[in-house]
């Protein structure tokens, strides 16, 4: 586990994570500040950002003091120089998940945040263009939420001709 950057905001919990140097859990208010602190600390590339809907999950391991909410935003940062990976997991809320946008820190999160908005329905404050990206514009709902069905259509073989 590597130490938090010196400019990190208060109230960040840390934990060990698999295949990653540290997983940190900021408060929603300190989220952007923490990511900016990591960036200043040498993590120049934001590898990934995605939203997770934990509805129906039996309970996940969180460090003390972190209140689990239904939605979580997971950011994976990468330092090319130090060859380290850091994961930032922020609790985004239950009803109307909402976090601040990372666009000002890493412009490359633009498409990823749009995807998280489109598929999981997380709102990003300060995002320049928060529109759907993968689904059609008039689509209803956010498909990767747990209360959104897979949309399976039963397959019928009635019409198929019999064996030749």
């Amino acid at each position: 586990m590597i130490p938090l950057p010196p400019t990190a905001p208060p109230g960040v919990a840390c934990a060990d994570a698999l295949a990653c140097d540290v997983a940190c859990f900021p408060t929603p208010d300190g989220y952007v500040d923490l990511v900016r602190a990591w960036r200043e600390d040498g993590f120049e590339l934001c590898a990934d950002l995605c939203g997770v809907d934990y509805l129906g999950h039996p309970g996940r391991d969180l460090p003390e003091g972190v209140v689990a909410t239904r939605f979580e935003v997971v950011v994976n940062l990468l330092s090319l120089e130090r060859r380290q990976r850091v994961r930032v997991r922020v609790q985004a809320g239950d009803r109307e998940p909402r976090v601040a946008s990372l666009f000002g820190v890493y412009p490359g999160t633009e498409a990823m945040e749009r995807e998280a908005f489109d598929l999981v329905g997380i709102l990003f404050d300060g995002h320049p263009d928060l529109t759907r990206i993968l689904m059609p514009e008039d689509w209803e709902g956010h498909p990767l939420r747990k209360d959104y069905a897979v949309g399976r259509v039963p397959v019928q073989f009635k019409e198929a001709p019999g064996p030749r």
Partner: peptide, 23 residues
């Protein structure tokens, strides 16, 4: 149960997979 992010180098760049398992 747990979560993990691993990455490999695909011909186009970093291909990562973030998995959350509930057991």
């Amino acid at each position: 149960a747990g979560e993990v992010y691993t990455a490999i180098e695909s011909p186009r760049g970093e291909l990562g997979c973030y998995l959350v398992s509930d057991g």
